[in-house]
Computed example of a mutant assay.
Amino acid sequence: MRGTTEHKGVEPHLSGFLSDHESPEKVVSITVEPDVTYIEEARDSNNLNFDFIVEGLTEKKLMIQFIKVAVYDEDGNLITYRHLNHNGVGTPGIHTIGKYEIEGKEILDIFNPFHSFPRAMPLNRLRYMFTFIEPESNREFYYGNVIVEPSTYHQEVNLTIPVKGTITILDGHDYYSHHRRFSMSLVRKATNNVFFSNFSRYSVDFTLLGEEGNTRQMDPTEYSMNYDFHFSDVTKFYTHEAEVYAPAEGEIVDVVDDHDDLYGSSFDMDEAIREGRVADIAGNHLIIRHNEGEFSHLFHLLRESVLVSVGDTVSRDQPIAKIGFSGAATTYSHLHYQLMDGADFLKANPLPCRFSDVMLVRGSELVRYREATVDTGDIIVQE
């Protein structure tokens, strides 16, 4: 069986139109991306990993004046209220969303600015309120609301971290990570709608650390330069050729093992789009089906290092491959991991995931969690 949800996600009819408060003219539409939204129950917070796509429907030039959110519990009681606006000196809060002006029938990706709440706070219903103004007149206002009822995902598979040693997550899926900053309207346009959703929405990049706390071997000159990584010397990374272990029992449903490791170069995304091979961003990879709706995806493996074949059954902690530098591994050697509800990462939905028996470094101490999410900046000792 697959994981289940407690509450229904955003329905299309809740992705409402904004109307002029003086006329029924529809000037902007707002939709939630993705349409199924989850609460990620992190160690100290409840995180919401969804965004908004705002599309102009007329030739009007509009500016976002306010973004507000009201949070309600299951009985409809207001719990908290937050907002962004243009108040401030030099760099007001609204600037944190990036572009906030719509030029006619333009499409904007607005990354949800209200994405993290206290762990104990119920998030049964959130009402996001947008206010737009015509900047040239500074008096015509337009309003719109989007209701989000996020789901609590119940993970069935019991996962362990698939790399052993002292590990850091250089990039996870927090608000600032590259996995999170995925402008879906731009990506869909650039790839002719190849991407169904942001497949990396809950991804983590596992990277091994040496005894001195660096990601790779360094000489004294590099220490003085505060220089830590670059694709030209990726073989110096402690992660390079490190063993990858199955995170849980399951069946191998996909294997790619023949892509070159891109030492001294980088993945050419433009070329991949032109040639219709966007899926090559994963490089050498493995996909494990744990149950009907939970699949582990492991990317950027070393060429010809995979030890299993499609149809094989693997057990937890079984060696299955080594980490390389294939696909869009960018600037440092790492194992990209994500849990999804299907085997095709271009079409499946990403899922929040928790790992069992996680031991986090907290200064001179190790704190063990029976089960926990992991994210950017975490340092983990995996035995």
Rank of each mutant, 00 (worst) to 15 (best):
M269N: 02
E222M: 05
L170T: 12
S200K: 03
G88V: 03
F231G: 00
M359T: 15
Y238E: 10
E134F: 01
K347R: 12
H115Q: 03
G3E: 14
I379A: 06
G93S: 15
N49K: 12
I97Q: 10
I53W: 01
R125C: 07
V163C: 02
A190Y: 01
V367F: 11
D280G: 07
N226L: 04
T239A: 09
N112Q: 07
L335K: 08
D344G: 02
K61M: 04
I64G: 06
G264E: 13
L170D: 13
L301A: 05
A242L: 02
A348M: 07
V308T: 11
T215V: 15
E222D: 13
V310A: 10
V244T: 14
T207Q: 14
A120I: 12
S183G: 01
V361L: 10
N145E: 15
V204L: 06
G90V: 04
L351A: 10
L335F: 12
M225E: 15
E140A: 00
N124V: 01
D357S: 13
D35A: 06
E103M: 06
P92T: 08
V32K: 02
E33W: 03
D341N: 15
S197Q: 13
D35I: 10
R127C: 03
V306W: 04
E275R: 08
L339S: 05
M129L: 06
R82S: 13
V314I: 08
K26M: 11
A248K: 01
D205I: 03
D44W: 13
L366W: 07
M218N: 08
F355S: 06
V255Y: 10
H154R: 09
D171M: 06
S309G: 07
N192A: 11
D375C: 04
G377A: 09
K164D: 12
V314Y: 13
D257I: 00
D312I: 02
V27A: 11
D312S: 08
S19H: 11
P319M: 06
V255P: 05
E292A: 15
V28S: 07
G324I: 03
V89S: 12
G90P: 02
G276A: 03
D73A: 10
E6P: 00
F17S: 12
E243H: 05
R216F: 09
T191K: 01
V89H: 11
N214H: 13
T191G: 02
